[in-house]
Design a binder for these strands. Structure first.
Lengths: 246, 246
DNA sequence: CACACCCGTTGACCCAAGTCAACCAACATT
DNA sequence: AATGTTGGTTGACTTGGGTCAACGGGTGTG
């Protein structure tokens, strides 16, 4: 059992207008004037320690969260204990959108490392969306992007083979690290093989074997959580031409 | 190859205030005054014939659609031709939310039977959301519900066995037919075994076999697309206790 | 800084679902 | 009513990924 939520709300005002994550986060595409108004919206920051929950399924929904530092996973649990990881989130990405529909969260959000989020009270967001032109549109785009992402995961889970899934996962990570100014080809994963497996609908052994296979084939170099993508094009080819198929 | 979009926009004004689908659709929870304002929003209806596309991946995004009659599937295609059905939609449900993020649709929407939708111009919706209190919230809830639904599908695809997936699918259909005033236990499916299979990440033969198995076990009676659920509780049990597992 | 414990890797074996094929029932077309 | 076509069922066989088990290397905690 994991320890329960040790919330640390420090009073620090988070200013979107000062934040270097603007192009990745909710304020994307907004004017300077709009941006300064947005600073009112983001109430406080909250630190979440590794392995601790930002929220849990069933928690009443009050706010959405923008990741300022660190990373998270979201998962849903079945009564019999089976876990499905529904996503991994990095800086600038928004957590908690699932809660709007029923006013309670429907999944768990767990920090993969010591992390910090900006708390955006939902009622304030609603209100401010009426006032700030670009905010409403941008918020809709964030939600829509999540829907599109989810469809991609369905494609992955429903129609791809184990190695294709892992290749798609690695390319997706690469792309997101790149967008954050990191190397497209070398990074440290924050999640375990088991979590990757849960996300990809595979067992951890299968994930591990696929990593080894990619290494044998010269596509990547892995050591534990450190991944070096040696042949981006090769990985992409893997996804498109369903090789084993006739 | 399917024939291309034969659009039939008839000038008929669709009045939300008159529509019997309000409790299932976008206007849910709005006051009478708000509702009458909403009538301006819904421009026209559009008929879509069976097997025809309401929109295609890549089409520029202009509007979302509320299903007035009939049903649809949405799917995404991989370069190599693999199809993943991402959802089946019934009356009152909203199509096209995927298009907001990039201003182009990212999936295909195909009518499973001759159908009719209400066309809701997105720019008008944006504008009117600023004015009508309840509309913005309701729209956010619709999007959020879609995200939650997608997470459920991921659970299904990532963590369930073939028979569990089909049981979950049948129970979901039952629940949605019930919400529309139809029998919870007897209905006609509008999609083929292959489409069900694609949605559930299974081959059509596996779907067919699972149907037969359920029939042998007295859980359902099937004949072609007609399904009679004989033991709702039994089907639910199937999902929860991952029987084969240790 | 030592010692668990967790995480990752690998091998041997197994089984659920996929593949291939044959056949039949509906339904649409003429 | 005849015929072609599509959709569904079932059987025999194959296989990709799951299961079980053993082991070794990291790393975070006391």
């Amino acid at each position: 059992m994991r320890a329960s939520v040790p919330i640390t709300v420090d009073g620090l005002k988070s200013a979107c207008s000062q934040c270097n994550l603007v192009e990745l986060c909710l304020p994307f595409g907004m004017s300077d004037r709009e941006l300064s108004r947005l600073d009112e919206l983001v109430g406080a920051r909250r630190k979440v320690k590794r392995q601790h929950n930002l929220y849990r399924a069933g928690d009443s929904f009050e706010a959405i969260y923008a990741i300022r530092a660190g990373s998270f996973k979201t998962d849903v649990l079945l009564e019999d204990g089976r876990e499905q990881v529904t996503g991994f989130q990095m800086t600038g990405e928004i957590l908690g959108l699932d809660g709007i529909s029923t006013e309670a969260h429907s999944c768990n959000a767990v920090a993969l490392e010591d992390s910090e989020v900006c708390v955006i009270a939902y009622d304030k967001l609603e209100q401010m969306s009426h006032e700030i032109e670009g905010l409403q549109l941008q918020f809709h785009k964030v939600m829509s992007r999540e829907i599109v992402r989810d469809h991609g995961v369905m494609m992955l889970l429903g129609s791809m083979r184990a190695e294709e899934r892992l290749a798609a996962f690695l390319l997706n990570m690469s792309q997101r690290f790149t967008a954050r100014g990191f190397s497209p080809s070398e990074f440290n994963l924050r999640m375990t093989r088991e979590e990757i497996g849960s996300y990809l609908g595979l067992k951890l052994e299968t994930v591990s074997r696929a990593f080894s296979r990619f290494q044998e084939d010269g596509l990547i170099a892995v050591q534990q959580k450190h991944v070096h993508l040696l042949d981006l094009a090769g990985l992409k080819r893997l996804i498109q031409h369903q090789h084993g198929a006739r």
